[in-house]
Amino acid sequence: MSDIVDARGLSCPQPVLLAMSKMKEKTSGEIEVIIDNEVSRENVSRAARSQGWEILDTQRKGDDYHLILKR
């Protein structure tokens, strides 16, 4: 099972929904969420924190953001 969520090109609220369903599935460990805009980065980060996950790292790769979530 992949721990990568690719939400590039998807609009609100889908990146958050995809990330949340992965967080519910895994309950702990690390998840990488790939998004391609600042709004999704803010939204996914906010949702992750509200679920008790921390943002371990935010990497900018070209046009994309790779968020590493950890709990």
Binding site: C12, P13, V16, L17, M20, V39, E42, R46, A47, S50
Partner: peptide
Amino acid sequence: SRFCTMGALRDLILFRQWH
């Protein structure tokens, strides 16, 4: 700020998020 009135209701209903 990404102000959105629909998103306000949607996020509250979908995620219980008040932002």
